[in-house]
Amino acid sequence: MLKDITLGQYFPGDTPVHRLDPRTKIICVVLYIVALFCAKWFVSYGVIIAVLTLCVCLSRVPLRALSRGLRPVYIIVAFTALMNLFFTAGEPVSDLPVLRYISQTGVYTALFMVLRIVLLITGTFLLTYTTSPIALTDALDQLLAPLKKLRVPVHELTLMMSLALRFIPTLIEETDKIMSAQKARGADFESGNLIRRAKALIPILVPLFVSAFRRADELATAMECRCYHGGEGRTALYVLRYRAADYAVLASFVLLAAGQIVLGRLGW
């Protein structure tokens, strides 16, 4: 049951979107977000939707998976929509009982806010659905490399990120197992008041922490055994390389962002 949590799950595949350099994809997502936040009116939102639809189709990520990613934010979306709908000042839509409180600008703001959230989440999820976590962290490591000059420990941070990503499924599996084992001894996680339930977690948390520390220890030893000594002078087995397609895609997204800024200025 804990397995159902998706943390930007990766969908392996071999599509043009999957094949892009992960750095290209990250930069494109940033440009996409800039473009999205410049969008003001139907024309500009239409352009964004068209671009996203094209990417989704090319990536062959099932729509169901994309909508699953949206599930946790349904409430936020609904809340934003209602707030904008009722609390935007302006000309009422009509003078019928409820509609009196809804202004015309309110309707548009609500619609665009919802669109913006949905497009934002779907776009970023597309990145994590089509890029393996390892590729993502490698790409971040390189993209953030200039920050090393400012003494930001980029390599350490991305290493921590990839280790965390690597161990989340393991920990979830382990939690499942420990829960089952304690249930077999009659542990009860479902009944009782808050304090009793909190107490019932101890038999899970203690073994979980013990094993997490053990794993961390083993991992550190294993890394040292293979002469890991930090990011200094480290080379990659699979070197990331921009190809023609990457340049083309990057150029299109720069165009997209620039175009959106212009459209936004024009108020389209």
Binding site: I178, A181, A184, P203, P207, V210
Partner: peptide, 13 residues
């Protein structure tokens, strides 16, 4: 029906 799991030592707490 008592069940002793595979590697049960990891459940000690």
């Amino acid at each position: 029906v008592g069940l002793v799991f595979q590697y049960p030592e990891y459940q000690l707490f």
